[in-house]
């Protein structure tokens, strides 16, 4: 409110400071909305009955339908990692480490991140625009007026489905990626089978797998929290309504969820290493 006066005659300095202040306030407001949204949605976990059917439907959408693209992503990620590391390791004469390196890179880092990115691109953007269109068509107002809890019947099933589906998809990326690395390392570059598989089994610890698992669970929560909230708060956050607003919200949701996902990645790695 206070900066409205200064807007009447904005000097360059004052104007810039106001702009910075405004974007800071916006950022804090958005963070607050996200947090409240997440907590409110999770609080509906304790209401009975739990909408299982809707969760199944959403796992189908987020998980099962993502399988083809996830398998492709995992395969090529594994192959290119194996190719790059083979080229690097051969300079030190330690290609026997290939299996360990590929598996560690995939399980700890690349698997969760690649899976998350593919899910943002495929299911996250679609979910955001679906929710934004529901807002646009007053469907949430209608649900409110019918005294039907939006968080419980619309948001929670999607969030829960994501938290279940993302780790499973990540595991698929890991295994397929290790397979891709096998194709490049063992079948094409002639690293010995024993060195690849044996090295992998010897090096990878339960801690590494656990780290990947924790990451993917958090990624699922972060991504879907962002895309759901971005769609849900369309009317507050977007300057334009209609199809253009939906498009903007979706773009912002994809960018923001990817950035928050990578930030979470760093924080989790820093804590667990």
């Amino acid at each position: 409110m206070a900066n409205d006066q200064s807007l009447e005659s904005p000097g360059v300095v004052v104007g810039t400071v106001c702009a910075i202040g405004r974007s800071a306030i916006n950022a804090v407001q958005q963070a607050g909305r996200l947090a409240m949204f997440f907590v409110t949605t999770l609080s509906r976990l304790f209401y009975w009955p739990f909408p299982f059917a809707e969760v199944i439907k959403q796992i189908h959408f987020i998980g099962a339908k993502s399988m083809p693209v996830i398998i492709m992503a995992g395969l090529f990620t594994g192959m290119v990692v194996a190719l790059q590391f083979y080229d690097a390791l051969i300079r030190f004469g330690s290609v026997d480490l290939l299996g360990s390196v590929v598996a560690l890179a995939l399980i700890r880092e690349l698997g969760p991140v690649m899976a998350a990115l593919m899910i943002i691109a495929r299911a996250g953007s679609a979910t955001c625009s679906e929710i934004a269109i529901m807002r646009n068509e007053q469907q949430f107002d209608a649900l409110d007026c019918m005294a039907i809890d939006v968080y419980r019947y619309v948001m929670l099933p999607r969030l829960v489905a994501a938290i279940i589906a993302v780790p499973l998809l990540t595991a698929v990326v890991d295994v397929v990626g290790i397979g891709g690395g096998y194709i490049v390392g063992v079948l094409i570059q002639d690293v010995s089978y024993g060195a690849y598989i044996g090295g992998m089994v010897d090096t990878v610890q339960w801690n590494d797998v656990r780290m990947g698992l924790i990451k993917s669970v958090l990624f699922g929560a972060v991504i879907f929290c962002v895309v759901l909230a971005k769609g849900f708060y369309l009317h507050i956050e977007q300057p334009v309504s209609g199809a253009e607003g939906v498009g903007r919200a979706t773009t912002e949701a994809v960018v923001l969820s990817a950035i928050l996902m990578l930030f979470t990645d760093y924080v989790v790695s820093a804590f667990l290493l």
């Binding site: 269109i133 529901m134 068509e137 007053q138 469907q139 649900l143 005294a147």
Partner: peptide, 20 residues
């Protein structure tokens, strides 16, 4: 209270606002 009130109220929105 609001929930109870809303059970006795019907609202027809402009575009129908049907769940897609």
């Amino acid at each position: 209270q609001l929930t109870e009130l809303r059970k006795g109220i019907g609202v027809a929105f402009q575009g129908g606002a049907l769940l897609s």
